[in-house]
Every structure is written in structure tokens, then in C-alpha cells.
Nucleic acid binder design. Structure first.
Lengths: 155, 155
DNA sequence: TGACTTCGCATTCGTGTGAATCTATTGTCC
DNA sequence: GGACAATAGATTCACACGAATGCGAAGTCA
């Protein structure tokens, strides 16, 4: 016998989270492909639709994406007429991003599809509010724990 | 009032999963960068270390990555002497991938670091076995639900 | 055995990604 | 007010990613 399996993955939360995400998202990613929308672009659109006008940095934070990735996505989305950029009035460094009506319409469609597919996949799953609550709490706790101790973001 | 926020994201499980994953994994990704290991390569290494010799397709499935991505990762890992490729004896199409001692050593180190960082991040979190169980169950259910109905993997 | 299909993996190639860097603007301190 | 640091965002550039495709090696059926 070549050594007992050490069961790293089965206890490694990031693996389980990623696995669940991928399994759940796969059908929707196919939809995105049909619309020619990259995943990073979808994340930007969803955040914008939900939170309204945002600066690039706020957008990046909410979309869980690095700033350059968001900037690239915005350029593409702007070229397609889905979002608009306006220079900040108070702080001229800032660019405030907002949806165009076309962008909002598309995003609404995508969100509906996303929710539909999610609901279909979860139809047989039981009580998920518990899972959601734990996920939210966990994330919040880690974020606090990571940001707080050193006051400084390490290199 | 510009319409009540529809709270899409707060209820959208893929977003929550991804958010938790990223938050939890961020410190470890910094470690990977230090070692010059891409994320896809880490996933391959972790699976190999845990499951032992595997074919490319099995590896891809376990690593949650597309096959070409795995092949690319393997080429790089082989070039660095971390994995070895042997042609299958029965089926000559297959390539069985195995760890070299150097690869295994590195992976063991990385796994230890991953577990250490995970434990640190989760130190204040309460009972997670519940969360893990729910995640596993959820994933399994979706996978079954997705694969079963049609007997065939759709295009 | 030969034609055809299916499967495993490699390769190509276009594209998204993100670390590092740069520019422009703002805040700060003297 | 001028010099310096800090910040917002754009840009550059190298590289990973993955869809499409190619190719060789089994199965299959006659």
C-alpha cells in the first residue's frame, strides 16, 4: 500500500469553495460566452447594476478583481456602449463609471439568467440560508482579521 | 429615491463562494508568487501529491481545470523537474503524470504553508465542519443533477 | 484486415490577466 | 506657495489561460 491518502483537499476550504463555485457557475459561463461577455466584464456589470455609479477602485474591490483588470474590462464595455465614464468633479483623478441604458438592460437580462440557473441548480438543495450566513460571516471575519492586525498592507 | 437596491450579489451564491475563496486564498497566493508557481500549477501539484500517479484527464478533472491548461502547466512543471511523464503501457495515448522527489518536497512545503495560513485565517471562525459538510453536499448534488438528467454531456 | 468512430493528449493561437510602472491630481508640511 | 508624499487610474508587457483543432492510438464493425 502506497501510503494512506493524506486528505489534504477534502479539508482545504479554498478547494471546496472553488469547486462549488465552478460547479454552480458552469452553466452561466456558457451563457456569458453566448453574449460575448468575459467573466471579468460580467463581474463589473453586476456590481455596477447593483451599486450604481462607482469609482474604478471601488468597482475593483466590489468585483473582486485587480484594478488593471477592471480598467481593461471597462475599456471593452465602454467601446460596446454598455458603460460610461465621467471624470470626477471634486477629485479629477477619479473616473465614475455608470451604466448606459443598453448596459443596464443587458445586465438585467444576465442577472435574471444567472438567478434562474442558480435556482435550477439549487432546487433540490435544502436550507441554504444557513450556508450563506456562514459564508458571509466567515468572509467578514477573515477580512477583518487580515486587515486589522498590522494596520498596513504588507508587500 | 433611485430604486431600492435589488441585492443581487448578497444572495448570489457564486459571488459569495468566490469572495470567500479569494479572501481566504490571498495570503497563500503571495506564497505561490514567491516560489514562482502559477495557480494552475499549484492545483496540479496538490492533486498529484494527494492522489498519486494520474492521467492528464483525471488530473484536469481533479484540479478543476481544462485539459489544455493542465497540459501547459505540466510542460512547465516537467521543465522544472517537478513532475515526470510516462507513456501508458496498456493505452499508449495516455500519459501518466507522477511527482519527482523534488516536486513532492516542494508540494509538501506548499501544502504545509497552505494549511498553516488557512488555520490562521480560520482560527477565530467557529464550527466549520458544518460549512464544509454543506459545501460538499451541495457540490455533489449539483454535479449529480447536472450530469444525470441527460446521460450525455451536452456540447 | 480495412474503414470509421471515439478517445487521450498536444499544439496553436487569440485573448484576458495582473504585476510593475507611469502620469496626473491631490494632500501635506514647512 | 513650493517641494514632497500619497493616491486614482491608465498603460505596458510578459505570460497564463482555454477554445478550437490536430494527431496518433485504441475500439468497432464488416
Amino acid at each position: 500500500m502506497p501510503e494512506v491518502s493524506s486528505d489534504f483537499l477534502d479539508d482545504y476550504l479554498p478547494y471546496l469553495l472553488r469547486r462549488a463555485d465552478q460547479t454552480l457557475s458552469a452553466p452561466f459561463y456558457a451563457v456569458l460566452n453566448e453574449y460575448g461577455i468575459a467573466r471579468s466584464e460580467w463581474r463589473v456589470l453586476a456590481v455596477l447594476e447593483e451599486l450604481g455609479e462607482l469609482s474604478v477602485l471601488d468597482l475593483a474591490a466590489a468585483a473582486l478583481s485587480p484594478q488593471p483588470t477592471v480598467t481593461h474590462a471597462l475599456r471593452r464595455l465602454e467601446k460596446r456602449g454598455l458603460v460610461a465614464r465621467t471624470t470626477g468633479t471634486i477629485d479629477k483623478r477619479q473616473r465614475f463609471i455608470s451604466m448606459t441604458s443598453a448596459g443596464s438592460a443587458l445586465t438585467t437580462t444576465l442577472m435574471a439568467e444567472a438567478k434562474r440557473l442558480e435556482a435550477a441548480a439549487l432546487s433540490e438543495a435544502g436550507d441554504l440560508s444557513d450556508l450563506v450566513a456562514k459564508l458571509v460571516e466567515l468572509t467578514a471575519r477573515i477580512e477583518a482579521h487580515t486587515a486589522a492586525p498590522n494596520t498596513e498592507a504588507s508587500a
